[in-house]
């Protein structure tokens, strides 16, 4: 079983990102489960969401305490949330950032990091507003590439299933992130 924890802010689409991934993984023929650590939703407040992927039906229904990987939609969250808590030793952290992975050496020392400018990509495809872009579909392209939990074809299909608005733009954003995500760098 692979367990991935998503950290974002209300409005970025972390919860929907895990839902899309659950659908996409299922389309690949595997079992999936997505689940928000439901808070009282407010724009900008820290949001956590979870994804499990397995070859057999998933029975565990609890939060993820020791994730295999981490997806961070806003690295500034580190000031409020201990992001890497419980992350397994060789886990990968995918960060939405215009910076290079090495620039996160202090923050995520000892972990493997990849970055993708998902915010920039989202703005380019008019997803959300420039002040508050909806980065979820873009970051999923990077997840597909770096973590390999889902095929890009199923991801696009999953976006079409679960994102009723701007479907084409969302799919294009995921595609671009898939192509432009950085290499994984050991910090």
């Amino acid at each position: 079983m692979i367990e991935i924890r998503f950290h974002g802010r209300g409005g970025q689409g972390a919860v929907v990102a895990t839902k899309i991934l659950a659908t996409s993984v299922f389309l690949d023929g595997r079992y999936s489960q997505s689940f928000p650590a439901f808070g009282v939703e407010r724009r900008g407040a820290p949001v956590t969401a979870f994804l499990r992927v397995d070859e057999k039906p998933i029975r565990i229904r609890t939060e993820i305490y020791e994730p295999d990987h981490l997806v961070v939609l806003d690295p500034l969250l580190v000031e409020q949330v201990p992001l890497a808590n419980g992350l397994k030793k060789d886990g990968i952290i995918i960060i939405n950032s215009n910076k290079k992975p090495v620039e996160f050496s202090d923050m995520f020392k000892g972990f493997r990091v990849a970055t993708v400018p998902a915010g920039k990509i989202a703005v380019k495809y008019h997803l959300g507003s420039p002040q508050s872009p909806i980065v979820n579909t873009a970051i999923l392209g990077a997840v597909a590439k770096v973590l390999g939990v889902v095929t890009p074809e199923s991801l696009i299909e999953g976006i079409k299933t679960d994102v009723p608005a701007y479907t084409e733009n969302n799919a294009a954003a995921a595609q671009e992130a898939y192509e432009t995500v950085s290499n994984v760098v050991q910090l």
Partner: peptide, 9 residues
């Protein structure tokens, strides 16, 4: 939430 908001096939 453990069911109401959890997505699974």
């Amino acid at each position: 939430f453990f069911l109401s908001h959890t997505s699974e096939p």
